[in-house]
Simulated scan of single mutants.
Amino acid sequence: MHQDWIHLEHVGAWTDLTNRLAAVDDTDEFYEAEDLLEELNEPGVDPARDTLGLWDNDTMVGFGQLRLGEQLRDGRGRVSIGGGISPEYRRRGHGTLVMDVLEARAGEKMAERHPGVDYTIDVWGNAPGHSAGEMAVARGYEPARFFQDMTLAPGDFLPHRHPASVAEDTVLVPYSPGIAEAVRLLDNEAFADHWGSAPKSADEWAAMTDARSFRGNYSRVLLEGHGEDRPARALSHVLGAEWVARELYISRVGTARAARGLGYAAWVLSTVVAAAFEDGFTKVDLSVDAQSPTGALGLYERLGFQLVRSGTVYRKTVTAR
């Protein structure tokens, strides 16, 4: 058994392990090699220091990766650590090794980027009872938030009608690079009161919307003031991605605070779902914070989305040295 950071030539083995874990742990998080290659090239990521692979001869049997948000939220940094261990290698201390290395790296990276600033570390615990959650608790993490994965099949879709409150100077358009900044600003505003979120920089936004999986043609933005002299303002947006062929994943749903409660999000999402099903997609998936302050869970249920799995995010707060 040996360890090394994840090199470009390791992406194939990393993809194989990630997809095996998706099946074994029923996360449905399947990736192409290109997706993981993009993760190595994300803004601010140093693969040689922010990733770790565990190997048994030529087989990758475990991995970990660290992300640090470029911007602070509520005066604190936000770190997330992801990873996984092959089932037959679990409960042998390999997960502990990965966490030891990446937690130490989190402290180093925070000191480099935000010296003297406290931070949180989030890890995903998968379904209740999974060994990842047990390990997190043993390391001083606490259950912090519960998320629900939901899915929608064509026969269960209950579209939302066009809201009567939509003003004449608004227009619903597909996402395009020309409105990227307006949508980024809306996204940062819409998620400012969401647990665990941090504002996205222009570089982070570009990395997300330039990704192989992003689907601008299955994303919609409600713009106010479109076509006038003043810049258009985004009121509501739904962004879609496709990691598995013919399965659309809703990655972002947001509405400006002043425009909440008017039915915009349900309508915009309905148009995205309808377009996907019309083009032959077999299902639409999303993940929602069960305690979302916007009542998102109820919105999705009204459109016909159904619960398929639950998961827990564990968090630890670290005081800067």
Rank of each mutant, 00 (worst) to 15 (best):
H10D: 13
A13L: 08
L17F: 02
L17A: 04
R20D: 03
A22C: 12
A23Q: 13
V24D: 14
V24N: 15
E32G: 15
E34N: 11
E34T: 10
E34I: 06
D35C: 09
L37R: 15
E38C: 11
E38V: 07
E39F: 10
N41L: 15
N41I: 13
N41E: 14
E42T: 11
P43S: 13
P43C: 10
V45L: 10
V45Q: 06
D46I: 15
P47R: 07
A48W: 12
D50T: 10
L52W: 02
G53I: 02
L54I: 12
D56W: 06
D56T: 12
D58R: 14
V61Q: 04
G62V: 04
F63G: 10
G69E: 01
G69R: 09
E70A: 14
Q71A: 11
R73W: 06
D74C: 09
D74G: 07
G75M: 04
G77E: 00
R78W: 01
V79E: 00
S80L: 07
G82A: 07
I85F: 00
P87V: 09
E88R: 15
Y89A: 08
R92G: 09
H94P: 08
D100H: 11
V101K: 10
V101R: 13
L102Q: 01
E103M: 08
E103Q: 10
R105E: 01
R105L: 04
A106I: 00
E108M: 10
M110A: 10
M110G: 09
A111E: 02
R113P: 11
H114A: 01
H114Y: 05
H114Q: 03
H114T: 01
D118H: 09
D118N: 12
Y119H: 09
Y119L: 04
T120S: 11
P128E: 05
G129M: 04
S131N: 10
E134M: 14
E134A: 14
A136G: 09
